[in-house]
């Protein structure tokens, strides 16, 4: 019997690390990874509450978050490759115009 608070606290720590990664890193690949870390932290909290309340809905939601994350990564990385083709750089400071 573990308090559910431990899991939610760990989830909060991981989410904070992910948010910090989005703010301080300049490599868009690392920023994407930090976003994945934040989605993962939210999933952990969902699974913890699902287990605590004995309801399956939390786990179903984790499943949907995973598919959305997979779609997001596929489109995001394709965008990065397209930007790299036109600008020959992936520095996030140079991505300041929508025009190719």
């Amino acid at each position: 019997m573990m308090p559910v608070m431990f899991y939610v606290a760990l989830s909060a720590v991981l989410f904070t690390i992910g948010a910090l990664g989005v703010l301080i890193r300049r490599n868009p690949l690392i920023i994407f990874m930090s976003v994945e870390l934040m989605l993962n932290a939210a999933n952990l909290a969902f699974a913890a509450f699902a287990s605590s309340y004995g309801k399956l809905e939390g786990q179903i939601f984790v499943f949907f978050v995973m598919t959305v994350a997979a779609a997001e990564v596929a489109v995001g990385l394709a965008l990065l490759v397209a930007i790299f083709r036109t600008k020959h750089s992936i520095n996030i400071d140079e991505m300041n115009s929508l025009k190719g």
Binding site: M1, P3, M5, A48
Partner: peptide, 8 residues
């Protein structure tokens, strides 16, 4: 104490 309860 927003998250109380136990993991069964």
């Amino acid at each position: 104490k927003a998250a109380s309860g136990e993991i069964p």
